[in-house]
Design a protein around this nucleic acid. Structure first.
Lengths: 345, 345
DNA sequence: CATACAATTGTAATCGATTGCATATTAATA
DNA sequence: TATTAATATGCAATCGATTACAATTGTATG
């Protein structure tokens, strides 16, 4: 099992120096055309391949970027990652995946770990709403040469770029649509509002109500996890109220599905009795047989692509002043059967 | 913006040598306990962090593994990757993701690219049934020190480990179940049988028929892509036959869904007129409102974990003789409404 | 013909950590 | 006290590539 050939091997074979070989391989014009050609041929002959690790050590660039997400096995995150990979690979970068499972300590650990292997940047969707209290994270912040880009779940931190969707608008549009359908008592399945995304969906919901003269009723807002079971539980609570709601805007498709199941099993009709809108445009929302689920598309692929582009801009920026970009994508309300009583104008 | 501290910085501060510092940090007993303690404290003080790139160059181990899949945004593959990441991270490895989108040239390129950045191993689900004709791949094969582990879509190559499920059994069990339901004319939505997985599902299907005295009818086997649309098209063809089938075993859940849609829209009842079984246990199969879809679970999480374990065994193997493991997981038939006419015994 | 300048290639340091082989210091033994 | 052994540290090479700064050779010009 022979070792990989290095520039020294090539140099030795040609009676040259490693320096010359290196320059020749990089097509440096200081090296005569003849030598360049010769070196290139020999390199090919000897199956030479540049050792990227050596290069990385010398240059301080690993051409790796870290991506941190709560979990990878969800349609949303895997689509974002798909976008990131597709955008970064052509530029010579490799994508390292890390999952946090929403645990702060794991998130901290993985940030550190990525910094340690000298990634050229980190793209992340935060799991920890109190990220700033995190030592490893703060170290990263100070180290301005390693770009950090938030996507989706971000924290508003000065000097840090982010790519998100306009969750406020998502919440607003969904709620407005329900109002347009004639719904008056619209419940909201929320989630931990320490996260901007859930807070903004909630705020959008409230604003739409207020803009349309509907009084906000705190009892109609239920905090849930993003799961079918939690959706069922929340729906149960709502249905057991004295005056049940006539619509539900859920910040999660899974919870929306759970709610729909519970509602139907309780003998109510969707959308006639209760309209439902979810959030994320998970594949299954479109696959339902009877009641396809209205939802809000977050364009995860584009989000990933954009986050990657922002990263690329930041790494290629040589100025002293850091550019910070906060891109906000526009979500799209997708109206399906679960909320369509009448065709809208 | 100060640079990261190195062992040289620590050495300078303490009037020692980098060698001593290195040894102290590695808890080498040749270094006196006092010095060790001193160095460790100073390292902490100065926020020292080992430069993994330097280490990688020196040791030849990058502690990165590459994972190559057709695409990451499918439930199956992202679940496998989840398993891989969860298993490898605790052992100090990072996972680099590459997608091929089923294109041979991209697959080749990415294999080369990963080898170039000195990954310590590659776990992959092949996109190219003719992988052996691939130059980059063959280079990898010869280089016995970098473990290669196939998962799911493998190629039978001597000396290469793999983790798959028993697709034959999956196909057999699904078909047998349909026979047990009284179906006599069972169609099969297949896919490119140059891939072992599809070939084996097909063979399992055939075997179950033959074992139960049903004659194999080639016209009932339709090659499809794994998509809803293709499932519809295939179902259309089948329904238009003189004698339509009374069951469909699809090697893809998406195609199964498409078939179900087409069948229902044509006025047939599922499962009464036609039973359907899919493959993969995609989330939506369970979420259907009326006709939850029978399918075959492939345990992707476990598959990823196992593939990672096989990799770990191979890298930690110091013997000259290579260990090759071919793990075959057992799939599980999940019977739901789309194929359940009668409760089975 | 001498000098200047351009065109090539070489020398050696560098990135940061590890490690075999000295070397120096101290302690133990004869 | 002389010798040996153990303990602790330093020296210098190494991993493979890049690059500032020589050094060499050749060519052109006055």
């Amino acid at each position: 099992m022979k070792k990989k050939t290095t520039i020294y091997d090539i140099a030795a074979k040609l009676g040259l120096t490693a320096a010359t070989v290196s320059r020749a391989l990089n097509n440096n014009t200081k090296i005569s055309l003849n030598t360049r050609k010769l070196v290139l041929e020999t390199a090919l002959e000897m199956n030479y391949e540049q050792n990227k690790l050596a290069l990385a050590l010398k240059s301080g660039k690993s051409f790796n970027v870290g991506v941190i997400v709560p979990r990878i096995d969800s349609n949303f995150f895997s689509s974002v990652i798909r976008g990131i990979e597709e955008e970064l690979y052509p530029m010579g970068y490799h994508v390292i995946i890390c999952q946090t499972h929403n645990q702060e300590n794991i998130e901290n650990e993985k940030i550190n770990s990525l910094v340690n292997v000298q990634v050229d940047g980190i793209l992340m969707s935060i799991s920890n709403a109190n990220l700033e209290e995190n030592k490893g994270f703060n170290k990263l912040l100070k180290n301005k040469k390693t770009p950090l880009v938030f996507f989706d779940r971000k924290k508003d931190i000065k000097g840090i770029s982010s790519v998100t969707i306009d969750d406020f608008k998502g919440g607003y549009d969904a709620t407005k649509h329900l109002l347009d359908q004639g719904c008056k008592r619209i419940a909201h399945l929320s989630n931990d509002r320490n996260f901007e995304i859930f807070r903004n969906r909630y705020l959008g919901y409230k604003q739409a109500l207020s803009d349309n003269g509907i009084e906000f009723d705190e009892r109609l807002v239920i905090e849930t996890q993003s799961s079918v079971l939690d959706g069922r539980r929340a729906a149960r609570l709502l249905l057991d109220m004295e005056t049940p709601p006539d619509a539900i805007f859920s910040s999660s498709d899974f919870a929306a599905l759970g709610a729909i199941q519970e509602i139907k099993e309780s003998g109510f009709k969707i959308p006639e009795d209760i309209c439902v809108v979810g959030f994320s445009n998970e594949p299954f929302t479109r696959f339902m047989e009877l009641t396809t689920i209205s939802t809000v598309d977050q364009f995860p692929l584009e989000m990933g692509r954009t986050a990657a582009q922002v990263f690329l801009e930041e790494v290629s920026n040589t100025e002293d002043t850091k550019i910070t970009k906060n891109v906000v994508l526009t979500p799209q309300l997708i109206i399906r059967k679960s909320s369509l009583k009448h065709k809208e104008a």
